[in-house]
């Protein structure tokens, strides 16, 4: 059977809340106050952006210095097509900038009219974001700026009023989800109110839902087998906590259901019976709602309960 491969958009999006160490806290708070801090290593080099531990010796680093908001481009790359989340939405150069007073370079972007206006060795300065929160994006970007290089960076205590102690970093990734051959066939059949598993050619077990492989034998399953619609509750639990955005009254029963002809139980909600009367061995059948695409829940068929011996291997 050939079916069109199913696809659907999938967005994975979450905020990461991260705490800051003392050096990171001073650096990011400094950016909020339009001050760029570096950290001095034991051998006297100044690292910007500053880190908590020396990348070579692993020494704990705490001696902060204030470097200039001006510096020199050490390498660059022209990005003619800005992507979502990047600091500028017009074409820009990615740059590594060694700020005056620093011995290492900071990654950021440079606002320039075009690639011909950018070269390694060019002088730039920080353009501050109008709204600053204590984040690397408090530097809106760099901009070309002719200025002499500044001298030795003065020490800085790294203390400001109301220090930033954490950041919240938003992350969003967009995918096009495709479930593959076996699950596409399963989902497509469900839309027709048929439950179709796949049989392992080696051990003959029928998997529902099928994932394309028999996890015992490590071979592809391909022979499609219609199962159910009737099935047996093998085990269950009573849910007492309402899930967010779920329009089901608690308590309700969530069960493992061995559909007739299947060698693996799937899970589903049990309805049409008080929650405290659900039991192992209860015979159930799927209930489909109009245009649902999959069983909304399972309800008792009224048949006598299945004998424990008939489903104990499926527990």
């Amino acid at each position: 059977m050939t079916t069109e491969i199913l696809k659907a958009p999938l967005v994975v999006e979450f905020p990461f809340t991260r705490s800051l160490g003392p050096v990171q806290s001073a650096f990011l708070t400094g950016l909020r106050e339009r001050v760029v801090l570096g950290v001095r290593t034991t051998d006297g080099r100044v690292l910007v952006p500053p880190v908590e531990y020396d990348p070579v010796t692993a020494d704990e680093l705490r001696d902060l210095v204030e470097v200039a908001p001006t510096g020199t481009v050490t390498t660059w790359a022209w990005n003619h097509a800005p992507r979502r989340g990047q600091p500028l939405d017009t074409p820009f150069a990615w740059v590594l900038v060694r700020l005056d007073g620093a011995d290492t370079a900071l990654l950021h972007v440079l606002d320039a009219p075009g690639p011909d206006a950018v070269h390694t060795g060019m002088r730039v300065r920080v353009r501050w974001a109008p709204e600053r929160t204590g984040a690397i994006t408090d530097i809106a970007c760099f901009e070309p700026h002719d200025s002499p290089s500044a001298g030795e960076p003065p020490a800085h205590e790294g203390q400001f009023e109301s220090m930033v102690t954490g950041i919240v970093a938003q992350a969003r990734l967009d995918y096009t989800y495709s479930p593959g051959r076996a699950q596409t066939a399963y989902i497509t059949a469900l839309a027709d109110r048929r439950i179709v598993g796949e049989r392992c050619p080696s051990c003959r077990k029928v998997y529902v839902p099928p994932r394309g492989a028999c996890p015992t034998c490590g071979v592809a399953t391909s022979e499609q087998v219609r199962v159910g619609p009737g099935g047996t509750v093998t085990t269950f639990c009573i849910v007492n906590i309402k899930a967010k955005n779920l329009d089901i009254e608690v308590p309700y029963v969530y069960a493992h259901i061995a559909l007739d002809g299947a060698d693996l139980a799937l899970h589903g909600r049990i309805g049409g019976i008080p929650y405290d009367q659900v039991r192992m061995g209860l015979r159930v059948e799927p209930v489909w709602t109009e245009g649902g695409g999959y069983p909304d829940h399972y309800r008792p068929t009224g048949e006598p309960d299945a004998d424990y011996e008939t489903f104990k291997e499926l527990l």
Binding site: R18, L28, T75, I167, A169
Partner: peptide, 16 residues
Amino acid sequence: YYVAPLWPDSVALAAL
């Protein structure tokens, strides 16, 4: 902390 919020993609970093 210092890099990922700028979303520098893999090609950009290789280009630098």
